[in-house]
Design a protein around this nucleic acid. Sequence first.
DNA 1: TATTTTAATTAGCATTTCTTATGATGGTTT
DNA 2: AAACCATCATAAGAAATGCTAATTAAAATA
Lengths: 313, 313
Amino acid sequence: MTITQLYYVLAVAEHQNFTKAAEKCFVTQPTLSMQIQKLEDQLDVQIFDRSKKPIELTEVGKKIVTQARNIVNESYRIQDIVDQQKGFIGGEFKLGIIPTIMPTLLPMFLKTFIKRHPKVKLKIEELTTEEIISRIKDGHLDAAIAATPLEDDSIKERVLYFEPFVCYIPKNHKLYGKQKIDSADLEIDDMLLLEDGHCFRDGVINLCKVFKNHIDDKFQLESGSIETLIKLSNEGLGMTLLPYLHTLDIREKEKDNLHYFNEPPPAREVSIIYHKSELKMQIIEALQDVISGIIRGAIAFQDVKIISPVPKK
Amino acid sequence: MTITQLYYVLAVAEHQNFTKAAEKCFVTQPTLSMQIQKLEDQLDVQIFDRSKKPIELTEVGKKIVTQARNIVNESYRIQDIVDQQKGFIGGEFKLGIIPTIMPTLLPMFLKTFIKRHPKVKLKIEELTTEEIISRIKDGHLDAAIAATPLEDDSIKERVLYFEPFVCYIPKNHKLYGKQKIDSADLEIDDMLLLEDGHCFRDGVINLCKVFKNHIDDKFQLESGSIETLIKLSNEGLGMTLLPYLHTLDIREKEKDNLHYFNEPPPAREVSIIYHKSELKMQIIEALQDVISGIIRGAIAFQDVKIISPVPKK
DNA sequence: TATTTTAATTAGCATTTCTTATGATGGTTT
DNA sequence: AAACCATCATAAGAAATGCTAATTAAAATA
């Protein structure tokens, strides 16, 4: 049994197809066929059920794949140990970011980061929290930036900053006259929300829920981007909430529409999250350092009230 | 990087000698030299400091060895998964047993076990608890039978039975007249003890300690075997305590010297212990089944008072 | 039935791993 | 200090392993 064989098994299990898996492994299809057969012979057990189309894992196969993933990941850690020892920060690093953080945070830290750590090949992807969690677990992401806490046992979190919510209230809205908004003033029914799947949506719902026991699930207007929310709001379709960083690059004439909360403002906790196995921890720490450093200058709130980003049951 | 290379690194790290390690791996010494060099080249780091005699691990080397042990052990688990799936119970199994359990328990279950599981190649070794713990941790033992609880995070325990202590009191002893002994009657100073390193000794000391706050560390007579303890006691050198199973094959004329404790009698907890990684769990469970089944007929005590086998501080 | 998709097989080449033989180094003995 | 021993590295060839290209086989699709 070799690590390579286990790696091939993982590839076939993932793509359910020898040919595609072979491409991903940069070898030909017969190589995979032969190596996997060899492993199956050695263990004297079928890992794949080749009678099914597309190919399927057998029952033992599933267990073997889980263990193989373990072994392959642990083997990567040896290079990790060496890098750590040498203080080397480099290599490919796959980072996920949720949509409501991506456009504001990424431009703030990216330049600084690649300047400070030129050997790191960052591959950044915009993903929902749900996608992020599953990809961190299966090793397709090294880390991600998301709203926390997630309360997932296999994922660790390091808080980067707290980002307060800010009200965006159009002129015709009944709350427009109020200088400082209180959480109790919020009414979920005339709040513009992001579409389902965004954790910022869930955060806003949680914030309102605190003061209302039930909510009508009849939101008429939902959007995929915060930019659109602002425009819809300008059209007089309701108020909305914005993450603080989004308010920094808002147009001058719209700034009047920003209304801040009474202290302590509700806020989301933004963290860098990663698998509990702590692979590539040097790079994660490097990211944390850069982002925390940059944010210190941008957000200066003392006390906040953290709103959970996950739907309550 | 291959599992074989990691295995070679482990062998050299253990034996601190390429030649000896090569023998254990059933390859020649140049094979080890080359493969380990290759790995070192690939990682671009020295794992061994070859200038030292005997050879030593570098700082990174130590970390790599720890991780390599992980990976190699986890790779064994794949065969384990297959065996488990097939219900196959076989292969080499290294079992440690502490000296005060070995002579009485082993004859009781060995025949039954090898009859029921003929494909298991049992390798049994008599070892102290301390040796057992370190060998389970480094993978040289698959499991062991010892007195518990040990309170060691990386070792799991499954209780096999509780074995009461029985007093062995020679005719001239002041307690000889008493039919039922109470723990409070015991005096550490005229108790014959096993020599240092036996956990049964520590158990007896703990039992006495409960009723005396300090003990004089001036035991005159100490022996390496329970058989000898009995003989010394017969010579009038003091009383002693025996584990219950040892009293079953005592000579007829010496049976009068056995005095039982008031209920609940002090007892030691005997468990099968194994690494938390649960490798070869089928065989461990098979052992547990056989031993528990056999013991059910031999020990029938309701309530006991468990005495810790580890020295108190 | 013909076509397409996909995995297995075969044969040959390239690479890797291993062994035997030998060299180098450092410490120990006489 | 010379000879010796222990121990690891190196070199060269043999065995094995892993890979590719070309082909076959089998099943799904049209």
